[in-house]
Amino acid sequence: MTDQNQPPIDPAAGSGVPPQPPQPPQQPLPPQPPAGAVPPQQPYGGVPPQQPGVPPQQPYGGVPPQQPGVPPQQYAAAPAAPLDQAQDKQWASFAHLGGILWILPSLIIFLVFKDRGALTRQESKEALNWQITWLIVWVVSYILGIILLFTPIWWLFATLIPWALYIVNLVFSIIGFVRVNGGGTYRYPVNFRFIK
């Protein structure tokens, strides 16, 4: 017969293993939605409501929003340094020489250096107008060659005239380069000045 006042015997007490503290009761996991089901939406768009006593978080990474009526700060690009006399002459002459590679070099020089040197602005504009004029005539000669394809003179417009125009462009571009590099200016004999 056992004594009712006697504490229960721990079987691990005599085995040298320390007694384990009582474990808290485990809470059951929330039920999982079935596969393919849309999870329920959380209130407030998934953002928990603001806790009392906690300062509000700054939106946009801590940058305060722009105040109404206050214009944003304007950052103006620094003006490019003007060309000295030697650089001005150099880029002005390169604008003509670039014509041997068609319109692109004179266009780039005009756009980049037109406000940095008076001679470069004048000569690159002249070279660019010549390249536009020459390119129009060159394209028209090819179009005439296609139109006259089945006539005996189609090869004249499709091959001979475009090559002659390229040689004319090459000669005028080199003459312009030499004149401007020597300290003068150059005007093409036939030039429609589209850019004023």
Results as ranks from 00 to 15, higher is better:
residue 10 D to E: 12
residue 115 D to L: 00
residue 1 M to L: 13
residue 180 V to Y: 03
residue 112 V to Q: 11
residue 75 Y to E: 05
residue 46 G to W: 03
residue 11 P to N: 08
residue 128 L to E: 02
residue 7 P to D: 12
residue 27 Q to I: 14
residue 25 P to F: 14
residue 42 Q to S: 11
residue 130 W to G: 00
residue 172 F to H: 03
residue 102 W to A: 10
residue 101 L to Y: 06
residue 42 Q to F: 07
residue 137 V to P: 00
residue 195 I to M: 10
residue 67 Q to H: 05
residue 39 P to F: 12
residue 10 D to M: 11
residue 145 G to V: 03
residue 97 L to V: 05
residue 87 Q to R: 08
residue 80 A to F: 04
residue 167 I to W: 13
residue 9 I to Q: 15
residue 129 N to F: 08
residue 160 L to M: 14
residue 128 L to M: 12
residue 62 G to K: 06
residue 147 I to G: 12
residue 66 Q to S: 12
residue 13 A to L: 10
residue 111 L to V: 07
residue 47 V to Q: 15
residue 45 G to C: 11
residue 189 P to G: 09
residue 55 P to M: 12
residue 42 Q to D: 07
residue 22 P to Q: 13
residue 91 W to V: 01
residue 139 V to L: 15
residue 137 V to F: 11
residue 187 R to E: 12
residue 193 R to Q: 14
residue 116 R to W: 09
residue 53 G to M: 04
residue 34 P to I: 07
residue 58 Q to Y: 11
residue 152 P to I: 13
residue 148 L to N: 07
residue 92 A to Y: 03
residue 144 L to T: 01
residue 187 R to A: 14
residue 108 I to Q: 01
residue 21 P to M: 14
residue 174 I to S: 02
residue 186 Y to E: 01
residue 23 Q to V: 13
residue 146 I to E: 06
residue 85 Q to Y: 06
residue 108 I to T: 05
residue 134 W to M: 08
residue 190 V to P: 00
residue 133 T to K: 02
residue 33 P to W: 09
residue 100 I to D: 03
residue 105 P to W: 06
residue 194 F to L: 15
residue 192 F to Q: 02
residue 46 G to Q: 06
residue 146 I to C: 07
residue 129 N to K: 05
residue 136 I to C: 09
residue 2 T to P: 14
residue 97 L to R: 01
residue 164 A to I: 15
residue 132 I to H: 02
residue 53 G to R: 04
residue 44 Y to N: 15
residue 159 T to G: 12
residue 58 Q to K: 02
residue 13 A to S: 14
residue 59 P to Y: 03
residue 124 S to M: 08
residue 119 L to S: 01
residue 33 P to L: 11
residue 68 P to F: 05
residue 91 W to H: 04
residue 47 V to F: 10
residue 97 L to N: 01
residue 37 A to G: 08
residue 24 P to N: 03
residue 114 K to T: 01
residue 93 S to A: 15
residue 60 Y to D: 13
residue 114 K to Y: 02
residue 92 A to H: 04
residue 29 L to K: 10
residue 89 K to H: 02
residue 78 A to D: 07
residue 99 G to M: 05
residue 55 P to T: 06
residue 158 A to P: 00
residue 109 I to H: 01
residue 31 P to Y: 01
residue 94 F to V: 00
residue 6 Q to L: 15
residue 177 F to P: 00
residue 154 W to N: 13
residue 130 W to S: 02
residue 22 P to M: 14
residue 195 I to D: 03
residue 176 G to I: 09
residue 28 P to Q: 15
residue 177 F to I: 08
residue 94 F to L: 15
residue 144 L to V: 13
residue 84 D to C: 04
residue 152 P to D: 04
residue 21 P to G: 09
residue 121 R to P: 00
residue 109 I to E: 01
residue 18 P to M: 07
residue 86 A to R: 13
residue 157 F to E: 01
residue 141 S to Q: 08
residue 80 A to R: 10
residue 72 P to V: 09
residue 34 P to V: 06
residue 86 A to E: 14
residue 15 S to Q: 15
residue 75 Y to S: 09
residue 123 E to N: 03
residue 183 G to Q: 06
residue 140 V to S: 08
